[in-house]
Write a protein that binds this DNA or RNA. Structure first.
Lengths: 110, 110
DNA sequence: ACAACATACAACCGTTTGGTTGTATGTTTG
DNA sequence: CAAACATACAACCAAACGGTTGTATGTTGT
């Protein structure tokens, strides 16, 4: 399973496209939280929150570290910035500033 | 159906979470394109491309205007910037700079 | 007028998503 | 050691997603 740029962009934006996940991300960006501490904040089941955390983790927006019986999650601001860069790149297409524009636009042509 | 901020964020990131839609967005940010001109660029059916355009339109990332039998789509850079702002807001949570942080973090609590 | 073109939209279908419950495993703590 | 806690993960389910084909409607050019 090749992890292309487009794969990572898919994962990033998909992870951000759910309000519960954005809320979890806010919390773990503000500071480390255990999964169960996070789960306590929502009406859904522990397992559901666990899955949301896994989606954020696969997108690289959050990392987990084990401490005893707890899994502590913290947000990764670099990945957030890399999502921002993707948007700026799009904006530069609009500005007509991108030199690689043909590469970008022809990636589906054959 | 209330269009809350979170609803719009869901729609925005979901629209961006598909590589075909990002590619369509690049093209219409670079300049106006008819739906069929866009459809010609991909291997999928016209209807599939039409649906992708509709998703981008509902997210506000693109607008359509009718000219004769053609529907011309162009990208909306302002909505793109508003997506960027959502990301910087998240980044500011990380920086500990957001004053409204309690509002942001407690929106699911009761 | 009519054929070709451009769009819109409904119906359908397999896969993914977002949730659930249940079970297993490891870690504290009394 | 046993009970309570924290996590992991499988199985299941309804709904949404991303694609298809087919049909209808309006527009253009000969």
């Amino acid at each position: 399973m090749i992890e292309s740029d487009e794969d990572r962009a898919d994962a990033l934006f998909h992870a951000l496209a759910d309000r519960t996940r954005r809320d979890i991300l806010r919390r773990v960006l503000a500071g480390e939280h255990s999964i169960s501490a996070l789960a306590a904040s929502y009406q859904m089941s522990f397992a559901a929150v666990q899955k949301h955390v896994a989606v954020l983790e696969r997108a690289g927006l959050l990392t987990k570290r084990r401490q005893g019986r707890e899994a502590l999650a913290s947000g990764d601001v670099q990945m957030l910035r890399s999502a921002g860069r993707l948007l700026t790149e799009l904006e530069e297409v609009w500005r007509g500033r991108i030199s690689r524009i043909d590469d970008l636009l022809n990636q589906f042509k054959e």
